[in-house]
Design a protein around this nucleic acid. Structure first.
Lengths: 339, 339
DNA sequence: TCCCCAACTGGGAGCGCTCCCAGAATTCTG
DNA sequence: CAGAATTCTGGGAGCGCTCCCAGTTGGGGA
């Protein structure tokens, strides 16, 4: 073996004084290898600094040892949101514990869709963890046709039947928020929604509405649509305030919109939480505690989500025939000063 | 070719009525292929939905077509910081434009270092884009020994000689901040630093100090160390305030610490910016405009950084013999209400 | 004692591709 | 128009691995 080249399995086998086959068996701890042979091979591998050639292995096993994490979300949303950073970090940890590499792919232009499909179909990854929340997103349909093992993060907007997914209890979170507000005496509880083609936004709105009705309150005129950005939260809250001057609470479907709501309330001379209480959603680790006053918000644990997703995907990859279903994870209320 | 299997190059060649070699040449647009043959092959490939087997190709070319993006930074910093989200997104865009896949790796425990090195040495990626800012980080040294093409984001804390890197003008940014404060009449300009084993933090501190001295001001007692977190900014500012009650400006080395500073100032009854002006660093796209008052901050463009990094790495990979040097990118002042 | 079956080992084939080389077809030169 | 140069083509080898199969070893039961 020349000095400047990486050792191959053959080199390891020769060094250990066994055949290539035996070396392979030892390294992959197959059955039918004597402990003696196994020790020799493992020792040789360590000695030579052997690391198997993934390409050669892939060529025969038809497995790449890599999983793609696909974010199908407009650029701005991904960048603003530490949720995605958490997801990526968590995905890496979970996957690398399983010895799987993580390929990261963003899909934010229409052109990216065929490229992504082509890539995944091409067998460059064994499976995918996909975050594709928009209702019109063509990706889930295309993925289903391509018969690639996929687990979704969040309820996919399209092709909901027969998909493996892990979602948060968005409706329950909204209910939690409304109940907290109601319990502290609020009666005119408005909401600022996200884009309603986003299942999470729709679920949060539904939760708010059901909770109001359950409390015997009338939701009419009390909801205004935003788009998850701070500016939209500000505008929506101003409209809400103009329409219902007796507003005494705002449930915003994201912390960013809650920040906008606070701005609008401040501009209108309302004190938070004395005059109007505010609750956000996401429990943005940086933003929520930094706000003035610190924001009460619905907390969700992205790490738990990704852990479940990886677990499902790995089962899928080992050929386990698990039933396609959406696992729903609980959320909780993180109480601070704003409500 | 069976229906259920992916077509191989051989299938494409047969379909086009040429040999495997010619098909390969056509697909890789090599020289010495007739236009006629090329068209036939390309047509056949399209018809059959052919996508080359990357593993087989890697095996012979000894190139993986993938680049690793390595974040060697404690978990919390990565999660809080939309800078990293920007970097990852930008890296994906730039790399995929070049037909290169992106592998993401985090290094946050000591154990991750050998694993990462092993992985990169194993030839699983053609090169790496590394963010490893800490002074004691063993990664840069290990990477240099492993002779892997690497470009650093930010000045690497270790092994600075002979490394390819793209950094921001941290010192210049601090100077910009101080000059702005001085121009608006502030004379007691304190600073809250980041962890000083972080080159960016050290550079920002140096810039602050030099700018003060250039303006004929005395920096004594006016700097306090933080660790880039909000809580540390609050504590540091309180100390500063206790030591120098006539403080009229704070330059924080991160927006998060600026948020902490604002909290401390508010708690001490100081009005921002009337009594004390505050300037942050990073221009955090979510946090800075959401603060009350909106934060003046030093803006840096992570997209530009990653673009330069990818450019350097691709040159390195094509064997160009570019000189190892640190490219320094300009920053600018984003003026809002806090200063 | 012998045979059988389990436990183990080694060699061969082949995954799908690129590259090299020899030969065929075409074009260019004098 | 012959010969040389050039362009193009196809087959063979081989990248490093896993898997299959045939062969070898050793221990336990008849």
């Amino acid at each position: 073996m020349p000095m400047d080249e990486r050792p191959t399995l053959e080199d390891v086998a020769a060094y250990a004084g066994v055949s290539r086959s035996t070396a392979s068996r030892a390294l992959n701890d197959d059955e039918y290898v004597s402990t003696r042979a196994k020790e020799k091979v493992l020792g040789a591998a360590r000695e030579l600094g052997y690391s198997p050639n993934q390409a050669a292995r892939s060529l025969v096993t038809r497995r790449t040892g890599a999983v793609a994490v696909v974010l199908s979300e407009p650029e701005a949303n991904v960048l603003d949101d530490p949720y995605f950073a958490s997801v990526m970090h968590g995905a890496f940890r979970e996957l690398s514990d399983a010895g799987v590499q993580m390929l990261l792919m963003f899909v934010d232009t229409r052109d990216d869709v065929p490229r992504t499909i082509k890539f995944l179909e091409g067998g460059h990854a064994d499976g995918a963890l996909v975050f594709a929340p928009h209702k019109g997103d063509p990706l889930p349909t295309a993925l289903r046709l391509a018969r690639i093992p996929v687990v979704y993060g969040g309820r996919p907007g399209t092709g909901r039947r027969g998909a493996h997914a892990v979602d948060f209890d968005n409706e329950g979170g909204a209910r939690l928020a409304v109940e907290h507000l109601h319990d502290s005496g609020r009666r005119r509880i408005g909401t600022v929604t996200g884009m309603l083609d986003h299942p999470a936004a729709a679920d949060r709105l539904a939760g708010w509405q059901k909770a109001l009705e359950a409390a015997g309150l009338d939701p009419t005129d009390l909801s205004e649509q935003g788009d998850f950005t701070m500016a939209s939260g500000e505008v929506a809250t101003a409209k809400l305030l103009a329409r219902c001057p007796d507003l005494d609470a705002v449930f915003a479907a994201s912390d960013l919109m809650a920040a906008g709501a606070m701005k609008a309330l401040r501009a209108a001379g309302r004190i938070v939480p004395k005059d109007v209480a505010v609750i956000g959603f996401d429990d943005h680790p940086t933003l929520a505690p930094a706000m003035e006053p610190p924001l009460t918000s619905i907390h969700q644990d992205p790490r738990q989500q990704i852990r479940e997703m990886v677990k499902k995907l790995l089962s899928l990859l080992t050929g386990e025939n698990i039933r396609p279903e959406t696992t729903v994870l609980p959320v909780k209320l993180a109480v601070r000063d704003s409500a």
